[in-house]
């Protein structure tokens, strides 16, 4: 309990430093948001008027503290390019990214665990090696390449699935499969090694000698314990998928958080970048901390001081 509180408290200075770094970095990037908005040949007076309107002519520190004050009140600012509240833009898109990340994790979990168990049971035979190579392959393929190939195959040549946007559940299939495939490999490998570990334990041999059926042993006793490290891997992968969704969002034209952020960087839309990076960072930190805690709780071997 004390540890939990301590970690949570440590989050606050971490987030403060984060926001400061983000705030500073985006302004260090060469390029002026007003110029991007007004385009070529914009007269100086129009630019000055815009700058004043957006509060960009105030000193850096003033801007930073205004930003902080707003964040505390739940206001992440207003997008310079669309005029909508950043919170609104994020809320509109976060669910899509979340669906992709959750779906991807689910796909990774289902297929990864299944493959990992099979590989462990058939250790060192052909199936095992094939599955291991497949897992490595899935982790090594660049996601945008995979996305492109899947889109060509399923949307164009076979015509089975749509490839643009997120308007129905069918639209989510290809992107989720792309993301999930990447994480699947990792999960499969972890499951396999964890299963192997557990299967060689004494209590498993005891169960065998007592005549418990092999199936029960594998699927119930062993898997239960083997899943501990797998859960942590899944948890971490989820955080990674939140971000990895960006490239997939680009290829499949899905309005998600990753794309929002990249567009924000390219347009120098400071509030959007600050807001999205903050949301990403918070999500990631929270996920990491939760995973750490879960790992600590379920694995009796780990002690935190």
């Amino acid at each position: 309990m004390k540890y939990l509180l301590k970690r949570l408290l440590q989050l606050i200075p971490l987030l403060l430093v984060l926001t400061f770094v983000i705030f500073l970095s985006i302004r260090a990037v060469p390029g002026d948001p007003v110029e991007v908005m007004l385009g070529m040949g914009a007269p100086e007076n129009a630019k000055a008027a815009e700058r004043a309107r957006l509060g960009l002519d105030k000193p850096f520190i003033v801007q930073y503290f205004t930003f902080l004050g707003n964040v505390v009140r739940g206001d992440l600012g207003t997008s310079m390019s669309t005029g909508n509240k950043v919170m609104y833009e994020i809320v509109r898109r976060f669910p899509n990214t979340l669906i992709l990340a959750l779906g991807g994790t689910l796909v990774a979990a289902l297929f990864g665990i299944a493959l990992g168990v099979v590989a462990a049971v058939r250790q060192n035979k052909f199936t095992d090696n094939a599955i291991m190579v497949l897992s490595l392959l899935s982790v090594s393929t660049p996601s945008f390449f995979l996305a492109l190939l899947l889109m060509l195959l399923f949307s164009l040549y076979l015509g089975w699935l749509p490839s643009i946007g997120m308007r129905s559940w069918q639209h989510a299939i290809l992107p989720i499969v792309t993301l999930g495939t990447q994480a699947m490999g990792m999960v499969a490998r972890t499951t396999r090694s964890s299963m192997l570990d557990v299967l060689s334990q004494d209590y498993i041999r005891t169960s065998r000698s007592r005549g418990v059926s092999e199936r029960v042993i594998v699927y119930i006793h062993a898997l239960k314990n083997a899943l501990i490290p797998v859960v942590t891997v899944l948890g971490l992968r989820f955080g990674g998928l939140l971000a990895g969704a960006t490239l997939v969002e680009t290829v499949f034209t899905i309005p998600g958080l990753g794309r929002l952020m990249v567009d924000g960087v390219l347009k120098r839309d400071y509030p959007v970048v600050q807001g999205t990076m903050l949301v990403f960072a918070v999500s990631f930190v929270v996920v990491n901390t939760v995973v750490d805690l879960i790992y600590g709780m379920i694995d009796p071997r780990i002690k935190y001081e």
Partner: peptide, 8 residues
């Protein structure tokens, strides 16, 4: 784009 516009 942003740098392009900034140069003009």
């Amino acid at each position: 784009r942003a740098v392009f516009l900034a140069s003009l």
